[in-house]
Design a protein around this nucleic acid. Structure first.
Length: 275
DNA sequence: GCTATTGTTAAAGA
DNA sequence: ATCTTTAACAATAG
């Protein structure tokens, strides 16, 4: 499931393969992936050059010549592949971008949850979804003091608060469980009950953990791969996600799995107490 | 055949 | 109005 580190890994892979490529034409095999009119989508992309790739939270942004950008969200299973036109089309490939050099950029998505839309480049950070994102989880952009102030206003439990992207961008279900375990915070603690020390620790762990996961090329639980179809390796650094019944690495207590905000949630009942 | 899987958002509820 | 919760989306694996 692509969270920030996986999306960043995809972005870096694509950057190596398709910068400078020109789109000859586009085929949409499953129209619901496109926000807006699919034939407009194809028409607008014709003859554009791929100039650069940005990322904001879990959103991937393709910037084209002529002030056009494509906002792409992979949701749960979205993947990009770069293939020769002669390579057989994989199952679940829904959009094909025909490039000038005989290659194709293919969007593949088993679950069909991913979405893409075209906007003028100048508006790429203003679209719904991106506009309401909290800061990127880096030391330069994510401020611990305002994070604590914002947490105090939230009545929701901390796990749900981390997943909603508004206080900090990029955490999904796996990394949310991991950073809460690292910070010894119970996922069902109301966000407003966290102390300033809790908030600082959580803040620091979010920055460190996501950076570490990017270095590892992301986490591959079942199916995630980058644009080179390479798996990540961060699954070997997980402490609680998927560890139900296994001993906590800190205290040996059996890791529990509960449901919080309709999401599977893993934690150590001994190290992580509700406040 | 039933359950579990997850990111976002529209819709419903408070 | 604003914040929060819930259901829906969709396909696959076990």
């Amino acid at each position: 499931m692509p969270e920030l580190p996986e999306v960043e890994t995809v972005r870096r892979g694509l950057e190596k393969m398709i910068l400078g490529a020109k789109i000859e034409h586009v085929k949409v095999l499953y129209p619901k992936i496109i926000n807006g009119d699919p034939s407009d989508f194809c028409r607008l992309l014709q003859e554009r050059e791929i100039l650069s790739l940005d990322r904001r939270g879990k959103y991937l942004i393709f910037n084209f010549s002529g002030d056009l950008s494509m906002i792409s969200h992979l949701r749960m299973e979205g993947k990009y592949f770069v293939k020769k036109s002669s390579d057989p089309l994989e199952k679940h490939t829904h959009i094909v971008f025909f490039l000038h050099n005989g290659r194709q950029l293919r969007y593949n998505d088993v679950r069909k949850f991913g979405r893409m839309e075209l906007v003028p480049t100048v508006q790429r950070y203003e679209v719904a979804g991106i506009k309401k994102l909290g800061p990127e989880p880096t030391a330069a952009l994510f401020d611990a003091t305002s994070f604590f102030a914002n947490l105090r206003k939230k009545k929701k439990v901390i796990k749900t608060t981390l997943l909603d992207q508004t206080l900090v961008a990029g955490l999904g279900n796996i990394y949310a469980d991991e950073v809460l375990w690292l910070s010894r915070i119970h996922p069902e603690t109301p966000a407003c009950n966290l102390t300033e020390d809790d908030a600082k620790l959580l803040h620091d762990n979010i920055i460190a953990e996501l950076a570490k996961a990017i270095k590892a090329g992301g986490t591959t639980i079942k199916t995630y791969t980058d644009a080179f179809q390479h798996s990540g390796s961060f699954q070997f650094d997980l402490h609680v996600y998927g560890k139900k019944g296994k001993p906590c690495e800190r205290c040996g207590t059996s890791i529990e799995k509960i449901v919080v905000g309709q999401r599977g949630t893993h934690f150590c009942p001994s190290c992580q107490k509700v406040k």
